[in-house]
Structures are given as C-alpha cells and as structure tokens.
C-alpha cells in the first residue's frame, strides 16, 4: 500500500513567516510514526493541512491517497486530536462523544462510546460536564473522540501533554496497542523524546518548516555520537589531557572519544591528579539526535 500521508513540497506562509518551507514527507502505513521538531518547526501546521483545517500556500498534502481537505471519505477514515483538545463546556464526556458520533454519521454508537470511555479510563467521569475536566482528562477524551470512527489512521498532536506519568504510560500502551493489535497507523507529534523513542517505529525531524531527518528509530539513534561526560577537578587539567577532544559542558567536560579509549583516558586523568567524581556516556538516544539535528536545547 502506498503512503497514508504525504506532503509534496508543502509551503505555508503567514505573511513573511514560513511555517512550512517546501516540506516533502511520506508516512508509510502501519506502526507509529513520530514527527518531532522544536517550537515553530511546523508540526501542527503540517497536521492541520493534512486534516484540511488550513490550506497550503504551495504544494499539496494527501491523506489516504486523497487531497487533504477535499476528500471527505478519507477524512472519515481518520481520527485526530490537534493540540490540547477543546469541547463544548456544557456537554458531559458521554454527550460529547454522542454529538461527535452524530457529526461523523455513526449510528447506534452507545456501546462503542462506553468501550472507548473505558479504554481511556474515563468511565467514572463519563457523565460529568467537560468544563470541570483537567487537561489530562481532556486529553483522554480527545483520544476517545479520535477513535470514535474506528480510524485506519490516527493523527495525534502532543497526546500526552498535561498528563501525569501514570497517564503517559497508559496512553503509550494504548498507542502501541492500536498500532500492534488494531493495525492503526498512528502519527504523533510529541516533545517527550524518551516517549517517542519508546513508542515510535519511525520519526521525522522538522526544523524551520523543513525536513531535516527521517528514518527508523534504530537507524537514527545508531548514527548518533556518544560522548564521555567527565565531572571532576581541576577542569583545566581534564581539558589539558583531552586537548581538542574536550569541550566544556557546564562544570563538566565532554570527551569526544571512542569507548575503547576510555580506560586509557581515565588512567591519564588519575595520573594528572584529577579528582574524578563522575564519568558517564551521554548520547545514543533520540534526544541527542534531535539536538544535533536542530541545535535546540530541547524539543518543544
């Protein structure tokens, strides 16, 4: 099967600012696909174009083979949650899902609504008005709303934003279960890079509206450089031993060396009377790759 989501030379400009700048991307069917990028990288803009909420200035977005925003059938095979979900405040969680079921043309959906409320752990709050919901509860309801039409494709923008660790774990398991057991293709944006690394099969990294990297998690992480981070004193002695291979990192020093060089380095530092308080390998994770690709201190 061809890609479930495609971006073909997409550009979206707001005046002089380009939220997307000639972005081309293809999301294959199956698994969990992560879209990463710092604030303003264009993740939400890309999702909104795919969902037909905004129109590209140039290029074309395609969803399930149809043109984004014009193919109503493709849109109905898709579930989505964009940014923090909002709901009419006077409706309860159950009424919200009933109302959305009607809007989606789903009849006699009461049993599925109960199942979904249970799946996102909102059964007890099902008949409470949404206006009293915490951000985490709203996120859960947003995910239930996205799953109403048993979608083949699920687009989630920051699905765990505002959730506690237990909630994040639940949603992570739900997403994996949707991909593994139900065969749903999940595309998600998140700034919780450790979570993305755990849950996604492939990731794309965007920066300033452009695609800077796209690969499987394994391939992407294996290509990242690990550094030995050494904390000790005096730092000048550590820098002297490392020479050009050393970089100051706050009170510590990052050593750009291979793993096999580490024992010799430690011996030399001890010989130079350096008091080493900590030496650990950093990098080799998605966060490191992200920082290398975007130059950002952290993803947002």
């Amino acid at each position: 099967m061809s890609a479930v989501l495609e971006a073909d030379n997409l550009t979206k400009a707001y005046g002089a600012v380009k939220a997307l700048d000639g972005l081309s991307l293809s999301v294959p069917p199956g698994g969990v696909y992560g879209v990463l990028g710092p604030n303003g990288a264009g993740k939400s803009t890309l999702f909104r174009i795919w969902l037909g909420l905004i129109r590209p200035t140039e290029g074309e977005g395609r969803i399930m083979g149809g043109v984004a925003g014009k193919d109503a059938k493709a849109a109905r095979r898709t579930g989505s949650m964009i940014e923090t979900p909002r709901f009419p405040p006077f409706l309860t969680a159950r009424q919200t899902l009933v109302m959305l079921s009607r809007a989606s043309g789903l009849k006699n959906n009461a049993a599925r609504i109960d199942t979904l409320l249970d799946r996102v752990n909102l059964t007890e709050a099902a008949d409470r008005k949404v206006k009293g919901f915490s951000v985490g509860m709203a996120q859960r309801l947003g995910i239930a709303a996205a799953l109403l039409n048993e979608p083949e494709l699920l687009i989630l923008d920051e699905p765990t934003s505002g959730m506690d660790p237990a909630g994040i774990n639940e949603i992570r398991n739900l997403i994996r279960s949707l991909a593994d057991d139900d065969g749903v293709t999940v595309v998600l944006a998140s700034h919780q890079l450790a979570e993305v690394q755990r849950v996604c099969n492939r990731v794309a990294i965007l920066d300033h509206g452009k695609l800077v990297s796209e690969d499987t998690i394994d391939e992407m992480v294996s290509g990242s450089t690990q550094h030995l981070r050494i904390s000790g004193s005096p730092v000048t002695a550590i820098m002297k031993v490392l020479g050009k291979k050393g970089t100051r990192d706050g009170e510590a020093v990052l050593a750009r060396i291979d793993r096999k060089e580490a024992p010799d380095l430690i011996r030399r530092l001890v010989a130079e009377k350096v008091n080493i308080t900590e030496a650990r390998w950093v990098g080799g994770d998605l966060e490191k790759v992200f920082l290398q690709q975007t130059g950002e201190p952290r993803a947002n």
Binding site: L51, L53, A72, A75, R86, F87, P88, L100, G105
Partner: peptide, 13 residues
C-alpha cells in the same frame, strides 16, 4: 468560542 472547529471540521464537509 470553544475552539472546537479542530474537533468538528474533519468529521464532515
């Protein structure tokens, strides 16, 4: 007002 177009719009034309 409730910022719910993002919720509603993809469900119908």
């Amino acid at each position: 007002r409730w910022e719910t177009w993002r919720l509603m719009a993809p469900r119908n034309s």
